[in-house]
Write a protein that binds this DNA or RNA. Sequence first.
DNA 1: CTGAAAGCGCTTACAG
DNA 2: CTGAAAGCGCTTACAG
Lengths: 356, 356
Amino acid sequence: MPKRASKKILPADAGNGGKERAKVTINDVARLASVSKKTVSRVINDSPLVREETREKVKAIIAEYSYAPDPQARALAFRRSFLVGMVYDNPSPQYIVNMQRGILDTLEDTSFQLVLRPCDRSDPKFHVKIRAFVEQQRPFGLILPPSVSEDEKLADMLRELNCAYVRIASVVLDEPSQMVRTFDTEGAAQAARHIAELGHTRIAHIHGPDSFRSAHERLKGFKQGLAENGLKLDKAMTIEGAYTFESGVQCAEKLFKRKEKPTAIFAGNDEMAVGVYQAARLAGLDVPKDISIVGFDDTPMAARIWPPMTTVRLPIREMGKAAAKLLIQGKAASGAEPTSFYPEIVVRHSTAAPKG
Amino acid sequence: MPKRASKKILPADAGNGGKERAKVTINDVARLASVSKKTVSRVINDSPLVREETREKVKAIIAEYSYAPDPQARALAFRRSFLVGMVYDNPSPQYIVNMQRGILDTLEDTSFQLVLRPCDRSDPKFHVKIRAFVEQQRPFGLILPPSVSEDEKLADMLRELNCAYVRIASVVLDEPSQMVRTFDTEGAAQAARHIAELGHTRIAHIHGPDSFRSAHERLKGFKQGLAENGLKLDKAMTIEGAYTFESGVQCAEKLFKRKEKPTAIFAGNDEMAVGVYQAARLAGLDVPKDISIVGFDDTPMAARIWPPMTTVRLPIREMGKAAAKLLIQGKAASGAEPTSFYPEIVVRHSTAAPKG
DNA sequence: CTGAAAGCGCTTACAG
DNA sequence: CTGAAAGCGCTTACAG
């Protein structure tokens, strides 16, 4: 029985003419379960300090009245919101959407919401803006895909602000519990092996911007894979692109102007690889007869372009899913090794043996 | 002077050893400005009920101490959060990312955050899930792109829940203040005129799924445009796709098997148009010599595919921006006419006069 | 294991 | 135009 007079008899029937049913609050649940609100709070937050019998009773009431704790009230009391921020500067829409989906996969049916923070690392106010966001919203935590993940100054700042985060990167930059690691070197090595096995020797690489660690890792892995096959990447055949379509076109055009044209090009991502297709067509080169092309990422475009593109696949959605799990589970998931993802080459029709 | 003893002398210097600077709260501002917190609240919320002099004084203190009101606390007191939800089922990543950007353009430097709600309209729990989201998060409002925007049951539910929303659609479905309207019929008519002017007569159309209003509007506009030129769309040349690449391939394959092959195909969106390219290649047809192709949306892929695609452009980012403006400005922006966007044909190289 | 008190940082009535 | 009181729906100490 209620211990004291209450305004509401039935929580589902407020006094405002039934126009809007009143929300069931922690007080209603406490009253109906004949416990204090603190006990209800303990049940909500999975505290071990509740007798099993009490917990059952409270849970039954919660279920019966479809009680859902108010996220805003909890946020205020916790001094931390239930927002998970995704801070990104990746230029590929496909990458972004996939990662969002992955994060949302694990956030579904939790009280967490995904909030978007696209940004520009070259903006001098970049850190100030993120700081303001964190200080004002007090997000539960942040997910940082590359290249934002590679910003040490940002990571330092988040630590200082006591804001949780998970970094997704091709190198181990932080505690295992805060890392989702991709083996880009291994993926690039697979690309190299594939190209070498086809018999190519005049091989070029268009890598991503210097500011992306992945660009370095992929270059490194590609060199390794070639070395395994007794091949060496010519410096003159190694050009820096910007991970964009346009840069792919431009870099490929430069390569095609050389007296010793490459017979195979490994582009640092699919966007640039599609640019290489374009440049090849403009130069009257047939893919793959005259020029073999390998990309990285396996965006949907890779399978749709003609001929379908050989590329290296990274399970981006799974990565987002894993990153979000690490974030909301906290240190629990921490082992000695960071969560890792291995890329895998997908051989389609943009690669063939060189002519002659 | 402070009216009562306060725990903090300088808000920026808390007692915890300076490890974490204490947040400036409304109480600090009130004390420092020698007004009540209610007055500070009025200033924050742009209430007219403040003397200009008082307002200036409070604003000065706010600026001096970089005070930013706590969104969680405001949300709790307002019984409404500062989250803007984007509820979408559109399958095109490019569309989604562009719209997100547009919404974020107007949300930047406001206290609003963008929260993502991808969904599946064919899920029987679709409405229940959105209801739970709205009841629990109490978002400030929702932005509904097609085809979610076309769901009347959803709109009814949101009205019942007293949740603000803006619909983006190709037809006027709601109050002008809650609509961003695109003239898809006009865009499709432009496509028809272009094809007709090139001299085509065997013309096919692959339209989007029946569940999308845009599919109907584009079909309607296309017919109108053809009619202006004395042309009629053959029923046998009108097929329903799913707005996906795969469906584009399949529909085009059907069309190419007909004894009277079309010489021009208008696809309901770019995704399907790219599928038509694919099918054309598989059938050994040259674009545009053997078959002219026109898409809709002008996604980046349209310019990158070979040959570059003639398509109809919709300013998606601007549409997102406008929708968010309507939402956060409320009825203020409401006129007799809904905010409107006109598509425009972009002629590239996938269209030419028919052979012979 | 459980609870009464105080508080998180704001706003809504209600007065004046 | 301004303010003191009460409250939004939770949680954090602090007791027991």
